[in-house]
Amino acid sequence: MNSIICAKEVAETTNNRFEREVYEFLREWILNHEDRILLQFDQPVDEYLVNDALRDFFLNTQHPIQKLLTNPFIASHLGRCVESVYFDPISGDPLLAATEQRIYNLARRMDSQQMHVPFRSVHPNKQTEAGDTANISTYPPNSEEIRYNSGNHFTSRPANTNVFDENSKRCVAKSDGNLHVLFKRGFLEERLHDIKSLTAELHDSGETDLQFFVIYSRHSFEEGHFGTSLVVMDPATPDYPKRVMVCDTLLKDLPHHPRWWNHFIAEYSNVFGDAISEIVEDLSHPLQKVNIKGDDPFRHDWDCPYYAASMANALADLVKNNSILLLTGSVVDIHDAMKDLMEDYYHPNREIKTRAVIQQVNRLKRWKSGREVIMDLVSEMSNKARW
């Protein structure tokens, strides 16, 4: 990804127009729904618009996000391309209009995960009543754990299920023939049981070709870190893999095992027996920075969903284009072949990109994930309008 810079002045101008558009939208809503206004009390309309109208709108409107998106300018602004966003050069936080931030925060309070635009909101306990992001100075005494928290910044907020669904949709689309991409909610052990069952079914149906399974999953209920695996199965022996390679995301160099190695081994052993540890090979990529207490929270790296998706995509592409390498090649050769396909994180000479560049890549991916949620909602509304 190339460097993308939006001038701060341009972003501020666009944000100001967005503020005016939202206020006009709310002003019209007030005129047409006087019976639903709960929070105005004795405030003049202009003051009410600034303080509480948006929260009133969310509280008293069915599908408030969808209603907002019926306004073309509001929809365009919330779903704008990353090139139109100014990011703080230090924290990486996008410059958002106050009402835009309030929209994301209020949407976060809703029961529907679909309305939760990833990375653009703070947890409800870090919001003011109106939906603004509370200043850390207003946190209660003895709240260091809340103050020191990655969730306060766009670049280090954990991903939600919308991001999982986005990555899943793209990667699963590569499944074809003897390539099976297992990109589901749940944990590694569940996916390994799926592999055994599916391989047995293929054997019973007369299949003889080797089967390649790319798995993207969390390790376990106790350990929620994402990882990727490639499991090669022979239908003639559905109870034991022909080859197993696993990929973690934390910084390390081959041949040293990553921090989550024991979790991989434990899950595989639970399904295939302890002997499986003898054939599990390490294809991990040193992409994710280890979070160190004392770092600024915005420097924390919670981007394992993107790293793991990149590795899963690379493995799926290798199955399609060079399965012989996956069957007979060395771990080093396969590792290098993955680097060639993971262009977001590696240079053409296979050197890993700098931490600053990787952070920028992930920042852009984060914004695009939110944009995809917005555009899906707009598309869904458009489809319903045609029915």
Results as ranks from 00 to 15, higher is better:
E278C: 08
I30W: 10
A236K: 13
A200V: 09
E201W: 09
K67D: 14
L341I: 06
Y86W: 11
H77M: 08
L78H: 04
G227F: 06
A356V: 08
N125T: 12
I358K: 08
N162P: 00
V122W: 01
A275Q: 13
L202V: 01
V373N: 00
G92N: 04
D35W: 14
K320L: 12
P124E: 05
H263I: 00
E19I: 07
L39S: 15
D209Q: 15
A337Y: 00
E12G: 05
V373Y: 02
I74A: 04
T128K: 06
N313R: 05
F73A: 04
A130M: 10
R109N: 12
S112N: 14
K252Y: 12
P238I: 02
A356E: 13
G273D: 00
L31P: 04
P348L: 04
Y86R: 03
H203M: 15
G273A: 00
P305H: 04
I30L: 13
A337N: 03
V357Y: 06
T14Q: 15
R147G: 13
R386T: 13
F183N: 09
Y148K: 11
P124Q: 05
P141Q: 05
A107G: 09
L68V: 08
S91E: 04
F213A: 06
Q62C: 10
K196S: 11
G227V: 03
I265R: 06
E343T: 14
E145G: 11
D88E: 06
A130F: 02
V181I: 01
A98V: 15
G224L: 13
E21H: 06
R147D: 13
S382K: 15
D52F: 02
P124K: 10
L192G: 04
I37S: 01
Y48F: 12
R355P: 03
E207V: 15
K184Y: 13
M375G: 01
K8F: 08
A107S: 14
P44G: 05
R108L: 01
L26R: 07
V172Q: 12
F272W: 02
S217Q: 10
M110A: 11
E201H: 14
M342K: 05
F221I: 14
L287D: 02
D176N: 09
Y104W: 15
D317H: 10
R371H: 06
T199Y: 03
W260P: 00
G79P: 08
L287R: 00
L39K: 12
P64F: 08
S369Y: 02
H219D: 02
A309G: 11
